[in-house]
Measured scan of single mutants.
Amino acid sequence: KKYKIKVYVKDKKTKKWKKIKEIEVDTKEEALEAIKKLPPNYEVKIVP
């Protein structure tokens, strides 16, 4: 079972969220580790 991490950042001009990358991992633990490495201003969604 794979997890997709969708990473969004808020556009300063439009104030809208835009997706900047998608990370695919195998476990939820890996997903949480990957999220920890991202800057705090990123919004993250984990999709099972």
Rank of each mutant, 00 (worst) to 15 (best):
V7E: 00
V44I: 11
A34V: 15
T14Y: 04
K6H: 14
E29W: 11
N41M: 13
N41G: 13
D11Q: 05
E29K: 08
E30S: 05
K13H: 11
P39G: 11
A34Q: 11
P48L: 15
K21L: 14
K12M: 10
K6N: 11
P40Q: 10
T27E: 02
E29L: 11
Y3S: 01
V44S: 06
E24D: 11
L32R: 11
V47P: 01
K6I: 15
P48V: 15
V25S: 03
V7P: 00
V9R: 14
I35C: 06
K12T: 11
V47N: 05
I5W: 03
D11F: 03
K13S: 07
K10G: 02
V7S: 00
W17M: 06
Y42S: 07
A31Q: 02
D11E: 06
E29C: 11
P40T: 06
I20S: 01
E33F: 02
E43R: 15
K21G: 15
K18E: 06
D26I: 05
K15R: 12
Y8H: 01
D26W: 11
I35R: 04
K1M: 13
E22H: 03
K15D: 09
K4D: 01
E22K: 01
A34W: 14
K2L: 11
E33C: 07
E22C: 07
K45A: 09
E22L: 04
V25H: 03
K18G: 03
K19M: 13
I46K: 01
K21F: 15
K10V: 10
L38D: 00
Y3T: 02
T27W: 02
K1V: 14
K6G: 06
K15L: 07
I5H: 00
E24K: 05
E43V: 15
K15I: 01
K15E: 05
I46A: 01
K16G: 04
K2Y: 07
T27A: 03
I46D: 01
K6F: 15
Y8S: 01
V9K: 15
V7M: 06
K45I: 15
K21N: 13
D26G: 09
K16R: 10
K1Y: 11
K18W: 08
Y3F: 14
L32I: 11
I35T: 04
K36V: 05
T14E: 04
K4F: 08
D11I: 06
I23A: 02
V25A: 07
E43S: 15
K10A: 04
T14W: 04
T14D: 05
E24V: 14
K45M: 12
K2C: 07
E30F: 02
T27H: 03
K28L: 15
N41Q: 10
V9W: 06
K37C: 07
Y8T: 00
D11S: 11
E24W: 14
I35Y: 02
K36H: 07
T27Q: 02
E30C: 04
K13V: 13
Y8R: 00
E24A: 07
P48F: 12
T14R: 09
A34Y: 15
E43N: 13
E22F: 03
E22Q: 05
D26K: 09
A31F: 08
V25M: 04
Y42W: 13
K15S: 08
D26Q: 10
K21I: 15
W17I: 04
K4R: 12
K2G: 12
V25P: 00
P48K: 14
K15Q: 11
I35N: 01
Y3R: 01
I20H: 03
K2A: 11
Y42M: 08
K10F: 15
N41T: 10
K36T: 08
E43I: 15
T14Q: 05
K36N: 09
Y8A: 00
P48N: 10
K19Y: 09
V47M: 11
K12Q: 13
K10Q: 13
K16C: 09
E24T: 11
E30M: 07
K21P: 01
I23F: 14
E30G: 05
V25F: 14
Y42I: 07
Y8D: 00
K37W: 05
K21R: 12
V44D: 01
L38C: 05
V9C: 05
N41K: 11
I23H: 02
K36W: 03
L38I: 11
V9L: 10
K15H: 12
Y8Q: 00
K10C: 10
N41Y: 15
K6L: 15
K19I: 10
E33H: 05
L38M: 11
K19S: 03
T14S: 09
I35K: 04
K2E: 04
E30A: 10
A31M: 14
W17F: 06
I46P: 01
K28A: 09
E43Q: 14
D26V: 05
L32T: 07
K6E: 15
K45C: 14
E22Y: 03
K10E: 06
K37L: 11
I35M: 08
W17Y: 08
K37P: 03
A34E: 15
I20T: 03
K37V: 07
V47I: 13
P48D: 13
D26H: 10
N41V: 10
E33R: 10
E33L: 10
K1L: 12
A34C: 10
W17D: 00
P40S: 12
Y3V: 05
Y8F: 07
A31K: 01
N41D: 11
T14G: 06
E30W: 01
K12Y: 09
A34S: 06
E29M: 11
N41E: 14
I5V: 12
I5K: 00
I20D: 01
K21M: 15
D11Y: 05
K1T: 12
I46M: 09
E29F: 08
K16T: 05
K45W: 14
E33I: 10
E30Q: 12
K1P: 14
K15V: 01
E22V: 08
K16I: 05
E29Q: 12
P39K: 07
K2I: 06
I23T: 04
K21E: 12
K36L: 09
K12L: 13
L32Q: 11
N41I: 11
K13N: 08
P48G: 09
T14N: 09
V9H: 06
N41P: 06
V9E: 07
Y8M: 02
I46R: 02
L38H: 02
D11L: 05
T27V: 02
V9A: 10
K4S: 06
V44E: 01
D11P: 02
N41L: 10
I20Y: 06
K37D: 10
P48C: 15
K19F: 14
P39W: 13
I46V: 10
E29G: 05
K19R: 04
K13T: 07
V44H: 08
I5D: 00
N41H: 14
E43P: 05
P40F: 08
K13Y: 11
I20C: 04
I20K: 03
K21C: 12
K15W: 02
K37A: 14
E22W: 02
I5C: 03
E24H: 12
A34K: 08
K6P: 01
K10R: 14
